[in-house]
């Protein structure tokens, strides 16, 4: 995937983000910029600080130091840690999405698929049942869930369907930035492939910016334009995905790339 981002302003600007848990390091001095429509992968082994970084970026965690500037829809730059809680939650309902590894965390398992997709619409004030339902149907179609499953609870869905439902639920309000934490983790390979295909299509079609945390280099290769490699809380290498994967410079990245099992 290639795209020219040079003519636009970035969407997200991260400066010196550091998070300590007490005296233990979560992630240190991370800086980068993300442009609209760009997909950034954060890769690394478990414990390398990927999830800490993602949670800090999405304001789920308050970092120890550093700033994350976000360009709001009105064009103003705001540090997301300075937003009031009301603003932050509003941002999360409208302009942002978060796809969890475990779909049960991102879905309401006790209500139907249609209501799961419709919740964000109702949260921003849609009070027309017919409209909510038709939008939900449309989105279920886009994530390849059969229309006759709209009134079923996600409990009765397979892992892959739950994950696709979670994606629909997040994208229904047309967010500009989506955080994904291991979106394909725990799925078998054929389902993974289908999900990745779907995600790639949606990201391209909607012009979403996305930050994808994964330990699976194949996911990074397929989805992302750029990637950052993390180790022990530090970003040790960053660059275009193809460059990093085909020509890794750091010894650790070389190790990571050569560790992929070949069938």
């Amino acid at each position: 995937m290639s795209q020219d981002f040079s003519h636009q302003d970035p969407l997200l600007r991260v400066e010196g983000l550091t998070k300590y848990y007490g005296s233990r390091l979560g992630c240190a001095d991370v800086s980068f910029e993300l442009w609209p429509g760009e997909v950034l992968a954060i890769v690394g082994e478990s414990g390398s600080g990927k999830t800490t970084l993602l949670n800090s970026l999405s304001a789920t965690l308050e970092p120890t130091s550093g700033k994350t500037m976000y360009r709001m829809r009105d064009g103003q730059w705001r540090n997301i840690y300075d937003l009031s809680e009301a603003e932050r939650r509003f941002l999360f309902r409208t302009d942002w999405g978060f796809v969890h590894q475990d779909a049960a965390m991102g879905l309401r398992m006790g209500v139907s698929a249609g209501a799961n997709v419709g919740e964000r619409l109702m949260a921003v004030g849609d009070r027309n049942y017919g409209h909510i339902r038709s939008t939900a149907l449309d989105w279920l179609g886009r994530v390849e869930i059969a229309a006759d499953r709209i009134d079923d609870q996600p409990r009765s869905f397979s892992g892959g369907m739950r994950q696709r439902l979670q994606i629909a639920r997040n994208l229904v309000t047309g967010p500009r930035l989506v955080f994904m934490d291991e979106p394909t983790g725990g799925l078998d390979v054929s389902v993974q492939a289908r999900l990745l295909d779907l995600l790639r299509g949606l990201v391209g079609e909607l012009g979403l910016a996305a930050i994808v945390v994964t330990h699976d280099l194949a996911v990074a290769r397929l989805l992302s334009h750029r990637m950052m490699v993390m180790k022990d809380g530090h970003v040790i290498e960053a660059g275009l995905t193809d460059r990093v994967l085909d020509d890794p410079r750091e010894p650790y990245t070389q190790l990571l790339v050569s560790s992929i099992l070949q069938v």
């Binding site: 809680e85 009301a86 939650r89 209500v111 249609g114 209501a115 419709g118 919740e119 949260a123 339902r133």
Partner: peptide, 22 residues
């Protein structure tokens, strides 16, 4: 409590939506 404080009542309509759907 947070939802009351921030006037986030979309969830209430989720319940009504479920009623109509069912």
């Amino acid at each position: 409590r947070k939802m009351h404080a921030l006037e986030e009542y979309g969830l209430m309509h989720v319940k009504l939506y479920e009623d109509i759907a069912r």
